[in-house]
């Protein structure tokens, strides 16, 4: 029984430490990368790998129980909303006219129409 608890602790340690490492790498990328479009990608590292690993680690540490259920709910919520807010930010930047600098020998596909999305219609 003891070795099982030990294995659980070691697994939690590993998950939390690697998650923290990804958070730091993502934040470092947000500072280091040269322009907005590149930084978007750095920002999605903490949102995906860092968040998943940290929550997994905390869940492993907590074991089964109400705490783990809450962790899973928060994790699922972040899993769904993280990319959505990244997409919203990128889309707003695109609509405002900000364009990425293309790599050598590449040409950007343009959006079909730059008009902002129509507002949802009100029901009568």
């Amino acid at each position: 029984m003891n070795w099982l608890a030990n294995a659980q602790e070691i697994l939690a340690w590993g998950l939390i430490l690697s998650g923290s490492a990804f958070l730091l790498i993502g934040a470092f990328g947000i500072v280091r990368l040269p322009d907005f479009w590149a930084r978007l990608h750095a920002a999605s590292i903490p949102d995906s790998a860092g968040m998943i690993l940290l929550f997994l680690g905390m869940a492993v540490h907590a074991g089964f129980g109400l705490v783990t259920v809450k962790l899973v709910i928060i994790g699922l919520f972040l899993f769904l909303t993280g990319p959505t807010s990244t997409h919203a930010t990128a889309n707003a930047a695109l609509v405002s006219g900000l364009r990425p600098r293309e790599g050598e020998g590449l040409e950007a596909d343009e959006p079909l129409e730059l008009a902002p999305d129509p507002q949802p219609e009100r029901a009568p």
């Binding site: 907005f36 930084r39 920002a43 930047a93 405002s96």
Partner: peptide, 12 residues
């Protein structure tokens, strides 16, 4: 948009 991105990351 850099700032919005940073706020969002900060929140996470």
């Amino acid at each position: 948009y850099d700032r919005v991105l940073a706020v969002n990351s900060f929140g996470t």
